[in-house]
Amino acid sequence: MKPKIIFITAASRGFGRIWTEAALEAGHRVVATARNVDSLAELVDKYGDAVYPLQLDVTDRSAAFSAVAEGHRHFGALDVVINVAGFSLYGTIEETTEYEARAQLETNLFGTLWVTQAALPFMRQQQAGHIIQVSSVGGVVSFPTLGLYNASKWGLEAFSEALAMEVKDFGIKVTLVEPGVYETSDDENAPVQENIIPAYDPLRAVIRQKFSAKKGDPGATTALILNMISEPEPPLRLFLGNFPYPLVTSKYQERLATWAQWKKASDAAQGK
């Protein structure tokens, strides 16, 4: 297998760190980015020139373009981009402040968009590439107390699906990775929930208990991610773990049943 040049965001912790190390162990070369580049020092000590650490806050569009260009310049190519950077904002819709909502979208949605836009010219020029977007089961269905997180991931799903159709003739592939619930580190820069309404506490407790019972081992995802890096025809969407599939299929059955129930009324609204 020919080694790939991989650009990974949020390489300092969670999935980003685990997948960076797995890629390096497999012989790939990695442009590893993080808000705090010092957190990548151990990777440099262990893997040497195979890893190129860069500081990046993905919410800064110009910085995203500069980092991608610098990574391409350093290694001379850009085969795979893995957009990991993001965090989960907890809070009901009523509780969410303007700052919290904007911070969620700036990182999860716009941050991923900026890195994707920065990578596309290089991939178009070489007529090849693979963009892997870390979405979530929460990008396909919604959960109470995670509405703005869901909004950010649904937006990511939407633009990435459109992107896949736009770039397929350039040899560029797009994959939306949709993890279930995993034991990954919380984002240290996630906003602290400012507005807590006690009336929602019982609902919060139910959701917390439901998710805590479903957490998977993030280390178990590495084989599948490495396979995606080398897969010539990767899927557009890919679940991680056994939590998403039964939940999503059940939700889609509910949606189809509702649309079917209201089909006659919907058709009548067409007019002529």
Rank of each mutant, 00 (worst) to 15 (best):
L163V: 14
Y99W: 04
W114H: 15
A119L: 11
E194V: 07
K153I: 11
E100G: 11
S135G: 14
E106P: 04
A151G: 05
V140F: 07
F170R: 06
I82L: 15
G155P: 06
P191L: 07
V84W: 04
R102H: 13
E194C: 05
E161I: 01
A199T: 13
Q117H: 11
Q193R: 15
L156G: 09
Q104L: 04
E157A: 10
T92K: 09
G76H: 07
I172S: 01
S185N: 14
A128D: 08
W154H: 15
E194P: 00
A164Q: 12
S142A: 15
F87G: 02
Y149R: 02
A85P: 13
V177I: 14
L146C: 05
N108M: 09
G86K: 08
H130T: 04
A118C: 13
T96P: 11
R102E: 15
G86Y: 05
V141Y: 07
R124P: 07
P198G: 06
V174K: 09
L163E: 05
D79L: 09
D79K: 08
A119Q: 04
P198T: 03
V181L: 13
N189L: 15
K153W: 12
F110G: 03
V80S: 06
T96V: 10
Y182D: 03
N83H: 12
V84N: 15
T92M: 11
V134S: 03
S136M: 13
V137A: 05
N195I: 12
A119C: 09
W114R: 06
S152A: 15
M123C: 04
A190E: 12
F122P: 05
L156K: 02
V80N: 04
L146A: 10
P191E: 03
L148T: 02
T116G: 07
P202M: 06
P179D: 03
Q127I: 03
V174A: 01
A162Q: 10
L109P: 06
F159W: 15
N108H: 09
G147R: 00
T96H: 01
V81S: 05
Y149T: 01
Q125H: 10
F122D: 09
L105E: 04
V167K: 08
T92R: 13
W154K: 01
Q133M: 12
A158V: 09
L156E: 08
P121M: 08
A151C: 08
S152F: 12
G111C: 10
M165A: 15
G91K: 02
A103T: 02
E95H: 11
S185L: 13
V181R: 12
I93S: 12
T96G: 02
V81E: 06
F170P: 01
L163Q: 13
A158S: 14
L109Y: 14
A85T: 13
V167P: 05
Q125F: 03
W154S: 10
E166L: 13
G171C: 06
E100I: 08
T92I: 01
A118H: 04
